[in-house]
């Protein structure tokens, strides 16, 4: 269970890779990952390593959406089928770019 950050060369895109179970136990680490980022125009959330996600994680994502502002892109990338299903059922495509 961990979060890995990686900025692209331009410094405008931040890749946040989440691994393991994504729930409230990751809240502080997850919040820090986007709050400490400066001048980022696009966040890529790499979900390929997320094995399980619960509704508290959905809340954390919505909080992120609010916090970074609606003009900043947030892309949720490569979610595994079970996790992708949860995002789809909650209609997260309305506020996030879901890329698979």
């Amino acid at each position: 269970m961990s979060i890995t950050l990686e900025k692209d060369a331009s410094g405008k895109q931040l890749n946040i890779a989440i691994e393991g179970v994504f729930d409230f136990k990751l809240m502080q680490e997850f919040r820090k990952s986007y709050n400490t980022a400066e001048d980022v125009e696009c966040f890529i959330l790499d979900f390929s390593g997320v094995e399980y996600m619960d509704s508290s994680a959905l809340g954390m994502l919505l909080n992120m959406r609010k916090s970074v502002g609606s003009e900043t892109r947030i892309v949720i990338k490569d979610a595994q089928p079970a996790v992708g299903k949860i995002l789809a059922m909650s209609r997260f495509d309305k506020k996030f770019e879901i890329e698979s």
Binding site: D54, S55, S56, L58, L62, N63, I86, S90, R91, K95
Partner: peptide, 20 residues
């Protein structure tokens, strides 16, 4: 439901379960 309307941050859990 629908879960994400109006920035409603709580209640998603039950809505999810309902959907399943």
């Amino acid at each position: 439901e629908p879960v994400i309307e109006g920035d409603e941050l709580h209640g998603r859990g039950v809505a999810l379960v309902q959907g399943m």
